[in-house]
Design a protein around this nucleic acid. Structure first.
Lengths: 167, 167
DNA sequence: GGCATTTACATGGTCGGCCAAGTAATCAGT
DNA sequence: ACTGATTACTTGGCCGACCATGTAAATGCC
């Protein structure tokens, strides 16, 4: 068979040092965890007719009722075009209704449909399950510490990313 | 004007509780951090002609030299189709070369081009910068703790996600 | 040898997400 | 009142990432 240790052979670039996770172990971990987390969320959400990412939007709508799309964009902190397309799909799926704002003819009001409300509890449940699954085996103190560290990291990143909610 | 506190009014669903980040604060934080992290990485990578996600692949190629595509898929732990398309784009961008494996006519050998090697150091530098930026203001002990907790979370998630490297 | 199975990729389609432009309506300045 | 921002979305294009499906080659079994 081909040697399994073929990995550390023939570096394509002269003087190539092992690089992958060495510069940036945490960044690397963040990426992988994020992907796995998203996949897991997707599996849980699939049964509810939602795709990962849409939960946040629906949660917000369930909480606030009818909102202007701009408000949603700000709250989700997403690109406007992303929200537009997401809403088009959610509307077609019957989870959301859109209607022009009478007070501002360029704006659009968005709200969750009554049928979607049946999902509300299920989505909350799925997220609780996801949270518990994510944090399985972690002490309460560890969970708190993780939350704290992630918050710090988030602030670090959001500064230069340009888009943080003003303190 | 419309009351700014309209936010906590008219819940679309009867008896709707505030939901967004309440079930799953850590999950929520993970999602947001991941997105910001990816954006930041994207900004750093853009100048190098790479899109976020491609770094891992290139890093692996730089480390290992020519590999079979299947090996890459396993190492990146990505969907085969994802890797195929990524490689097509990387090839067209001149970062990667593909050639049929003489020993196995269905396999494809992939390697980084010589020109791409110029990027190697820059990508490493970008990632170091990203890591430092991500962890700015964190003590070494905190960084280690974050890495440890993320690793635990990763293992939690990868168990049910189905695809973890055998222990 | 011959046929089923597994392996290695490729294709097509869908989604979230970004950016770059474009259109339409409101707002400000003069 | 008219004109120049600014705001609010939409469209189109592109990328990473997924799934489901398809095709070709190697492998296993009899």
């Amino acid at each position: 068979m081909k040697a399994e240790s073929a990995t550390s052979a023939d570096p394509a670039c002269p003087g190539a040092l092992p690089s992958a996770a060495l510069d940036g172990p945490v960044s690397h971990a963040v990426s992988r965890v994020a992907r796995l987390h998203r996949i897991t969320a997707g599996r849980l959400l699939k049964g509810l007719g939602l795709y990962p990412g849409q939960e946040f939007l629906m949660m917000h709508l369930w909480d606030t009722g009818a909102v202007r799309q701009a408000e949603l964009i700000k709250a989700m902190d997403l690109d406007p075009s992303t929200v537009t397309k997401m809403l088009q799909r959610l509307e077609q799926a019957g989870h959301v209704r859109r209607r022009p704002d009478p007070d501002d003819r360029r704006a659009v009001l968005v709200e969750a449909t009554e049928e979607s409300c049946a999902l509300h509890a299920e989505v909350r449940g799925a997220w609780s399950g996801l949270e518990e699954h994510t944090l399985a085996g972690l002490e309460p103190a560890e969970r708190a510490e993780l939350a704290r560290l992630l918050a710090k990291v988030e602030e670090n990143l959001c500064h230069e990313a340009g888009e943080c909610p003003a303190p």
